[in-house]
Amino acid sequence: MSIPVIDFHCDVLSKMREDSRISFQNDPKLDVTYERLRQGEVSLQCFAIYLSEHWGIPRYEYILDQIDAFKSRVMTAGEGVRWLRWKEDAAELRQAIENANQATMPRRRPWGLLSVEGADGFEGNLYYVRMCHELGVRFLGITWNYANWAADGALESRNGGFTEKGKKLIDLCNEIGLLLDVSHLSEAGFWELTERTARPFIASHSNAKAICPHPRNLTDDQIRAIVAMNGRIGLTFVPWFVREGKGTAVRPEDLLPHIEHVCSLGGEDHLMLGSDFDGIDSWIEHLEHPGRYPAFAELLCKHYAETSVRKWFAGNALSYLNTHLPEKGTSGAGQI
């Protein structure tokens, strides 16, 4: 059985910025490598641009550093990771996924997609946001866990929403087509965004709070809201987002209640994957890196129809991208 994968979140690029010696080819310091993408049949990996708290005051150059790492170190590994930025790319990826089970088709090179995790590094400058979209970034997670110039994060105790400049950020992203990600956004900010956005957003790496009550997980009302707007929810493999209890071994089977709960709220066509590989220092047993995806697919196919598993592994994410990515040559996208 061959089931292609789209994974909507990993933190490889921040690790590569911290250590210039890391090779994306097959470095043991990484969860996600070129060889593991091929091993796990990952057709598309989304690479987050994350600015670590340990780096001091967030700066735009740290975002540019990671875009450069993607171009110079990720895209050059192995046979080369291709950069997905346009609807035309999504159409080509769809064709590759549809042909994945044909034995006569050669195995395709994986694609990469760029997101920014937290608007902190834009330094409150909306021109930087516009330029980042023109450079090829297609998703923006508005916050990390805490407050920044745009909004409060999910772990900010006051649970504030958007600042005035943050509201202008939403409007700019709607204008240029920079898609928004609410995985680290406060609940108050989530509901403000549902009222202001013109485009459906995603939660790239969040699970169901009803199953595991971590503040980064989504409430039932939030899940229903994302489903209603035809957004997407990325099932994540962060052990403490999957199951309560410190030191408790978490297994792939523990993800099934999250899948079932999201689907019970109407989310079968809205669920995707957002592993958070390389953003964690402990892992689900037997789901420690992309090379484990085929075994995970086999497990899910014992409990669900293969057609559903294919949607969760790639189809739902791909249909969202095919609808919302800009067309090549669109004004304001990719002109720099």
Rank of each mutant, 00 (worst) to 15 (best):
M1Y: 13
P4D: 01
V12F: 09
L13M: 10
K15R: 13
R17M: 10
R17K: 11
F24P: 01
T33L: 05
Y34W: 06
R38D: 11
E53K: 00
I57E: 15
Y62E: 00
L64P: 00
F70D: 06
S72H: 14
G80T: 03
K87P: 08
A90P: 05
R94E: 15
A100H: 06
A103V: 09
T104A: 15
R107M: 15
G121T: 03
Y127N: 02
V129G: 01
I142S: 00
N145W: 05
W149K: 01
D152C: 14
G153C: 09
T163V: 00
T163I: 00
K168N: 09
I170N: 05
L172M: 10
G189R: 09
F190Q: 08
E192F: 13
R199A: 09
F201Y: 09
N207V: 11
I211P: 12
P213G: 07
N217R: 09
L218Y: 10
I223T: 07
M229C: 12
N230F: 12
I233K: 09
V238T: 08
F241R: 02
V242R: 02
T248I: 15
T248K: 15
D254W: 12
L255H: 03
H258G: 08
S264F: 12
G267S: 11
M272N: 02
D276K: 05
W283R: 14
E285R: 11
H286W: 08
P290G: 04
R292T: 04
E298W: 00
Y304W: 15
G315N: 07
L321K: 01
